[in-house]
Design a protein around this nucleic acid. Structure first.
Length: 216
DNA sequence: GACCAGGCACATC
DNA sequence: GATGTGCATGGT
């Protein structure tokens, strides 16, 4: 095992020891994960929960129900998630894709090979790499590592990556140095978000961080 | 009141 | 290709 793999394992072990298994993605269905993946873009999760609750409360958290709404109606329901006009359109784009390509059926979509499906998702306006990978990992249980701001920040603060690393490069570092295990990827990303929220904000709060012993 | 949140697309150079 | 900007509510 090379040094980088060792350090990734070391980080994972410390985080798992500190926080225990994370139960991600907090959703009742794969479709809810897909909706949440769009709603959480650059937004606090608490707002997403309220938006999801609004949709559930009106029994609208299904592809056909959401599709029947106007952009304005949808925007009103997801307001607490922020960027509501933008995200309403993005959700409609996602649902349009699902309906037109897979007849609104997630199980049909789930027949498609991971790399191919990732390309298809990335063509949707409003679905970028993190959203696509979140859907692949957390809705469809594919072994795809999800990169986000916390992933980048934690790795950067600990000197494992430089400033200029791209999404695909950072994702590649994880997938090439860890076993291709969907459960591991699920936990690892969730743990990075957890430690990031608590300790790795733009202004660091390194005291008490489980990764403090590893700081450069 | 400033700062930040589980990004992404688009304009402009 | 790379850099800058709009999108928006709600919690700390």
């Amino acid at each position: 095992m090379n040094t980088f793999s060792h350090r990734l394992s070391e980080i994972y072990d410390l985080l798992l020891q500190a926080y225990g298994p994370q139960k991600w993605w907090p959703a009742e269905s794969p479709f809810e994960v897909m909706v949440g993946a769009v709603l959480t873009q650059n937004t606090n999760w608490q707002g997403v929960e309220k938006a999801i609750a609004n949709l559930k409360g009106s029994n609208l958290l299904k592809p056909d129900k959401l599709q029947a709404l106007s952009t304005e109606e949808l925007a009103g329901l997801i307001k607490p998630a922020g960027y509501f006009n933008l995200k309403a359109r993005r959700l409609q784009n996602l649902i349009e894709f699902l309906t037109e390509t897979y007849a609104g059926d997630l199980e049909t979509m789930d027949q498609v090979e991971t790399g191919q499906l990732r390309k298809e998702l990335l063509k949707i306006n409003g679905v970028g790499p993190e959203t696509a990978d979140s859907i692949l990992l957390y809705a469809l249980q594919r072994p795809v590592f999800v990169v986000d701001t916390y992933t980048y920040r934690v790795m950067n603060r600990h000197g494992l990556i430089g400033e200029e690393v791209s999404y695909d490069e950072l994702q590649g570092l994880f997938t090439q140095h860890l076993p291709l295990d969907k459960t591991l990827f699920n936990q690892y990303h969730a743990l990075l978000v957890r430690v990031g929220k608590l300790h790795c904000q733009p202004k660091p709060r390194c005291q008490g961080c489980p990764l403090e012993p590893l700081l450069p």
